[in-house]
Design a protein around this nucleic acid. Sequence first.
RNA 1: GGGCAAGUGGCGGAAUGGUAUACGCGGUAGUCUCAAAAACUACUAGUCGCAAGGCUGUGUGGGUUCGACUCCCUCCUUGCCCACCA
Length: 859
Amino acid sequence: MIYSKMMRNLKADSIIQKYNASEIEAKWQKIWEKEKIYSPNLDAPASLSTKKPFYNLMMFPYPSAEGMHVGNMYAFTGADVYGRFKRMQGNDVFEPIGLDGFGIHSENYAIKVGKHPVDQAKISEKKFYRQLKSIGNGFDWTRTVETYKPEYYKWTQWLFIQLFKAGLAYRKKAPVNFCPSCKTVLADEQVEEGKCERCNSVVEKRDLEQWFFRITKYADRLLSNLTQIDWSEKVKIAQKQWIRKSEGINLRFKVKDMDIYFEMFDSVPQTFMAQTFTVIAPEHPMVHELIKSTGHEKPVIEFIAKIKKKKATNKYDLEKKPEGIFTGRYLEYTPTGKLIPIWIASYAIYGYGTGVVNCSAHDERDFIFAKKYGIPLHPVMFPQDPAEAKKVKNLEYCYHHAENGVLQEPVEFKGRKWGEVRLGVIEFIGKKGYGEKSVHYHLRDWLISRQRYWGPPIPMINCEKCGWQPVPEKDLPVKLPYIEDYKPLGIHSAGSGQAGKAPLASHPEFYKTKCPKCGGEAKRETDVSDTFLDSSWYFLRYLATDWNDIPFPMPKSKIENSAQRAAWLPVNMYIGGAEHSVLHLLYSRFITMVLHDLKIISFEEPFTHFRAHGLIVKNGAKMSKSKGNIVVPDAYVKKFGADTLRAYLMFMGPFGQGGDFRDTGIEGMYRFVRRVWSLVSSIKYQVSSIEGKDESLELERSMHKTIKSVTEDIKNLSYNTAIAHLMEYHNELSAFYTKYKILNTKYCKTLILLLAPFAPHLSEELYQLLVNKKEFSSIHLASWPKFDPKFLIKNEMVIVAQINGKLRGNIMVDSATSKNKAKIEELVRKDGNVAKHLEGKAIKKIIYVEGKVINFVIA
RNA sequence: GGGCAAGUGGCGGAAUGGUAUACGCGGUAGUCUCAAAAACUACUAGUCGCAAGGCUGUGUGGGUUCGACUCCCUCCUUGCCCACCA
């Protein structure tokens, strides 16, 4: 009994060598790195290289957890498949990786695990790079970038100085998010639904003086350039909405009895004659002057304090019902010749437009506000239906944004439709001198300061005599010192309006310095910059890791090879998460435009192509620690191998869509991988030809068809269908081999070449078995198979027979017959089932689509 | 409130105007085995029928078409993003 079991196992082993994923994968990763097959020569002059440079980039991870989860791996694998495909198509592919290790995410993680961020960075780096290596991507490991290394952030600081010198960095007092429990300010992106993402307490607003980048200056270009770049549509739409350009007019009127003019932005100028009151934002600095000697000072100030408190303690749940108070002032509204009251209203936003709103019966919020406080309303536009018009006149509801609404005022536009007069009204208002055409954006300037430790210190020095001075470039980097009290301090005595304090502010040995201009006593900026500044330019740095005197390749630099390396830019394909639509992807575009305008680089868009990948979920929910559904790749890599995991992840669904991770699914893929292994490894010494066998031509045809569909699928990032086609092809090869015990190696070679981007180790191992060359030449540098269209033309085809669009039968014909409608009709009529259904029926019409379908239309 | 994406077998999904459910998972039966696992083979949308074959079927209701998962309109549901933006 024991003997027979042993014999069986022995028998199996002697036929084929067992597939050992971890052995194969470790072996090839080592050889690839040694042979530098993924490290293109960046300095080869374009004229000497026959290969076209292709910069294939994926968003580098921020190490803010124990390590990568399969979601990260999914993204990297999908990007890597594309890079490998391009490499086999004859491009010189540069595919770098690094760590976005500076910033609040990584810092919070360090604090959480009780490690100093500097020490944790070292641990994370090791862990992430080990994991990234284990998945077998074609990364150029000779050029990694870590944003927290002084040789990197030296240039992040340099970048800040370039913006400052160009007038694009400035200081301003601004409300920021403050978490009272964590005693720290938070970035906007760390506030989720008004609550701190770490401790879930309600975030407050505090006024602090901050550094800003003038991204609003680029709003129009950031918007208009979108038409020129090939990006996932949803990301373009998100950016468009974030920038949100709004065209209208700026009205300008005098405040009665004062030497103050109010400017009001109105994007719906058609109803300007309906304005009966004006509201101003509670935070508006003009309010204090406005209320002087009106007798309304006390209640107004109390009201403002109340609203501020409400806004501060509850950013999002601010009650929908507007609140307000009369200021005691009036506006001389020339178009109607009337005095209209100026109110303060909770719904007016200081940061948008001019902070002052012109209010009428044709705006929902204004309407509700006026009704609540008994302010008169005066509709000037009515529905065509007289009954409805009466309701509007009686202020029964707010009538707005109606294309067909008929205007009554001004007389010049009486009877005209709302939807048609917009431009005419703007022109009219301009001529009358009430205001002029104006454009506003939702996009605000980029708040760059962080009162935190783990980031590049902002390279600015404040001198009492000379003001803010940039650190001289020769003194860069301003090194982040290793301090023990690195935890965020937050704001002392919250609510007192005191400035926030960064950890470095407790270190005179850091901030005490000399003014670079006058040499007098001066103080360094102790805030650090936003982590999104680090990542806004990293793609440039990958091409220049060796240089200390230049941040990245510049076409005009005299530094050796700088111009050649610049030829690799911009990025040809960028793959990453859609969650960065209006953060990283917008900031990178902005910084690139600035560098272009400063004539430092030659292009103004960083990524010519961008594709957003989907999200991997587990049990239908986004992976998160609190839900306990994080899937870590390591165990799967160990059990099934990276190839199986890669192929499984790519097979789950369309790459742009993501999917639900399941253990049973990965076992199916493991089966496929082992089948490929056993098929290909068992025919390795096969030399005879399959000519003459019944299915040989069919097999040839299948091969060409598979090459065609897999090539197209990968181009479209339809990895799931590419793998499905490979499975079908494999099934055919396997069936043939089972039947005849013979198979030409070329069919297997095609299979593994097409499989190489998905399962790089397995295909490399099998390729070496098949090619049996003396000198090593990697499958990943081999040429992508080409198909011959002549094999795609079918000699025989199935013509589907329909009656009134319903399937009733089919016939097999040769291609010559398929061109003959009459012949097809004759043949189809002979089909028993078709004949039965046609019997005794009058045929009205016969539609024949060549080579596909014939449809009989009967009564 | 606004925008975007999506709704197809038991499940992930395929098909972008022409045989709906490719490929895979799961399931059922079988082969091998003392047995199990693995592997392999066959079947697997529902329904009526011995069978041939018929009928129904891609969230809902309508429309266009010889023919609709696919195009147009209505509504419903889910997910994601933005949101007092004048």
